[in-house]
Design a protein around this nucleic acid. Structure first.
Length: 665
RNA sequence: AGCGGGGUAGGGUAGCCAGGAUAUCCCGUCGGGCUCAUAACCCGAAGAUCGAUGGUUCAAAUCCAUCCCCCGCUACCA
């Protein structure tokens, strides 16, 4: 009985357009699926939009649309974008579908029935002004572990820890900015801690890339906390029997993998349970994800599946992140390359990007996107090596023969083809996409050597039969190249396939077909070049667009007088100063601002100023700076100073002594 | 400081998890060839004490330990 494979991709969050970073996961996944099919494996490929969670609700509120409308917009966007890049899913679903609601409810009920869910009254941030509880990113505050400013579900700017509801300190409502209070409410928890032993064994056997496995193991060895799986939201999948609660988005999002399979299977009269309710059965589930969601896929998800009696994933393949100029993608900072605006709409061929992203470096490593490198790879490898070999062969064959000429295939050529095919298949099966593509490109390089050293352009003058033999061998290599490059560059490979005169479409051709001798007499039409060089001009344009975006993002906006008036700037007198333990740059100051009590202010001037020299001096203070904790020390105000990267802080001081608390405007 | 990723010829990059003989590929440099081909292709050369030190081993870029440096994100209230 042949095993089935189900491949999934991490769900794009339906809250913004696709950028190149997304594709680091989807392109290799598509390549992998195409490669499995070329090996004759029964393969299904599903993905869909992640529709829930607080960021979508908040964003929709700000835009004045419903969450459903916002989700639909980006769902359509991703669906179209993936299709334009030839990333073809059997099903591209949406976690807001009825199927997903039903499947999530069923799984949650099963977990409850199996005793893996318990309720607990917990203190939660509640906004008295907005009159509601504040889940996840509705609340901002201070991380209980590291003291950094954090959002409700994660210390995103500090230690990176996942925060459970109620853990955050000094909560602030993100909607109205007013101070939140704590209220007690019943919530539901998943007994993740009970799965520690199971996860430990499971991860040892988990396939995929080592980065996913190792990262997850590190967490399992530590303490696993039970996991709060309900939220106070309207938008999402209702928690059974609780009108005011939905399940946490990280529960219903991966369940999308199940429900999308279900929807696809329903459309084709297939039993989806063979895939998902068949532990130890004959289905291999393989998740392709970005390196940022390993925790959810290697810890939460298998525990849920185990707890509900579903099939466990066999492998998790985690891709490295994409950066630009060593900086992480960031919309607000302008470090972003949009798939549509910056690539497809500029007329670049999708296959070029597929090739670049899949072949530049190992799948698990960070990839530094660069237009320059993109151009180099296209011009040297695709145009110079692959495109040139195919074109010189086809043009020569077309001009001199018009059909595939007679002549034996050299055993050496067949062997090279067989080796290349073997290396490609093996590498792709091991998620080593670069290695596989290099092996394929080697075959093209060999083609150039073969053509060059056999000099058919000389032979044709004296020995037409000899020239014909060389040409047929080269055509055999072109045919093989079309097959082994098809997973990487489907459109271009199909064009090459048609150019060697093959009748049937390339899509159905298996890897085995690469060593089937090309039929003598098959017509060779006038070829067209597969790839065009990318001109320097085009690359310069793209680099300029990126630079402009970054500089625009960095530029500070104008403030109105009203906005400026909101700043409470005053002169203060320093009455005490001491260093802060473990910090290099910070001093703890007590400043007289003409108020009843002196203010405690933390200032980053320890490298340039000694505490003793500061006492008694007058400084300019921003008095209504949002309070913050630095190294555990509270700061209620900010000392104004001039600063350069080299010179350190230069304190601003009044011209002559004035009463403490004097206003500055 | 925390977390993450790195240090391999002039630049970029593979190999490292599963240790082996001349360390991969692309660009650049130098010399030669070819003229079928998109000024492309082919052959050859120079260029690397694989960040440092110590250890394990018959054998280390690869495993272990310590240290140094770089980058990103945060972060020291500029």
């Amino acid at each position: 009985m042949q095993r089935r494979t189900l491949v999934t991709c991490g769900l794009p969050y339906a809250n913004g357009p696709a950028h190149i970073g997304h594709l680091r996961t989807y392109i290799p996944a598509d390549l992998f699926v195409r490669s499995l099919r070329k090996q004759g494996k029964d393969t299904t490929f599903v993905c869909g939009s992640d529709a829930h969670g607080t960021p979508i609700v908040i964003n929709a509120e700000e835009l004045g649309v419903t969450p459903a409308e916002l989700v639909q917009k980006y769902h359509d966007h991703f669906d179209e974008t993936f299709k334009s890049l030839n990333i073809i899913f059997d099903k591209f679903g949406n976690t807001e579908s009825d199927t997903n609601h039903n499947r999530t409810t069923e799984i949650v009920n099963t977990l409850i029935a199996n005793g893996y869910v318990f309720s607990q009254n917990i203190e939660l941030a509640y906004c008295p002004t907005c009159n509601r509880f504040l889940p996840d990113r509705y609340v901002e505050g201070v991380c209980p572990d590291c003291g950094a400013v954090a959002r409700g579900d994660e210390c995103d700017q500090g230690c990176g820890k996942h925060l459970e509801p109620g853990e955050i300190l000094e909560p602030l409502c993100k909607i109205c900015r007013s101070k939140a209070e704590y209220r007690i409410q019943e919530h539901f928890f998943f007994k993740l801690s009970e799965f520690k032993g199971f996860l430990s064994d499971y991860l040892d056997k988990l396939g995929g890339t080592s980065n996913a496995r190792n990262y997850a193991k590190g967490w399992v060895e530590g303490e696993l906390h039970d996991w709060c799986i309900t939220r106070n939201l309207e938008w999402g999948v209702r928690f059974p029997d609780h009108e005011n609660l939905v399940v946490y988005v990280w529960v219903d999002a991966p369940i999308g993998y199940v429900s999308f399979t279900e929807e696809w299977a329903g459309e084709h009269g297939i039993d989806w349970k063979k895939y998902w309710m068949n532990p130890g059965g004959d289905t291999d589930i393989i998740h392709f994800i970005g390196g940022d969601i390993i925790y959810h896929h290697c810890i939460f998800w298998p525990a849920i599946l185990k707890g509900a009696g579903y099939t466990l994933p066999r492998a998790v393949v985690a891709s490295g992140m994409v950066k630009i100029g060593d900086k992480t993608f960031s919309k607000s900072r302008g470090y972003v390359v949009w798939v549509n605006d910056d690539y497809l709409d500029k007329g670049f061929h999708p296959d070029l990007l597929r090739y670049y992203l899949a072949s530049y470096t190992s799948h698990t490593k960070e990839l530094n996107f660069s237009w320059k490198v993109f151009q180099e790879k296209v011009n040297n490898e695709l145009v110079g090596t692959l495109g040139n070999f195919v074109y010189r062969t086809l043009l020569f064959a077309h001009k001199n023969f018009g059909t595939v000429p007679e002549g034996d295939i050299d055993p050496e050529v067949m062997e090279k083809i067989g080796d290349a095919r073997g290396a490609v298949i093996e590498a792709f099966n091991e998620y080593e996409f670069k290695r596989g593509i290099d092996a394929a490109m080697n075959l093209a390089a060999f083609g150039n050597v073969y053509f060059q050293s056999n000099e058919p352009w000389q032979l044709i003058k004296t020995d037409a039969l000899g020239a014909g033999k060389v040409v047929r061998n080269c055509l055999q290599i072109v045919k093989a190249l079309a097959i082994i490059f098809e997973p990487v560059m489907p459109t271009t490979a199909s064009a090459a396939w048609a150019q060697v005169g093959m009748d049937a479409g390339l899509n159905g051709a298996s890897y085995d077909e690469a060593t089937v001798e090309i039929a003598v007499g098959q017509p060779i039409p006038k070829p067209a070049m597969l790839f065009a060089k990318i001109e320097d001009r085009a690359i310069q344009d793209m680099e300029e667009i990126l630079e402009e975006r970054v500089s625009k993002a960095v530029k500070k906006k104008h403030v109105t007088f009203e906005e400026f008036s909101e700043l409470d700037i005053r002169i203060g007198t320093i009455v005490a100063a001491e260093p802060i333990k473990k910090s290099k740059k910070l001093l703890k100051l007590l400043v007289d601002l003409g108020e009843n009590r002196d203010r405690q202010i933390v200032a980053g001037i320890a490298e340039t100023h000694k505490p003793d020299d500061l006492v008694g001096r007058q400084v300019v203070v921003l008095a209504n700076m949002q309070p913050a904790k630095l190294f555990g020390v509270e700061s209620r105000g900010m000392i104004l100073a001039g600063g350069s990267d080299s010179g350190g802080a230069i304190l601003l001081m009044p011209e002559r002594e004035v009463p403490a608390g004097t206003a500055v405007a």
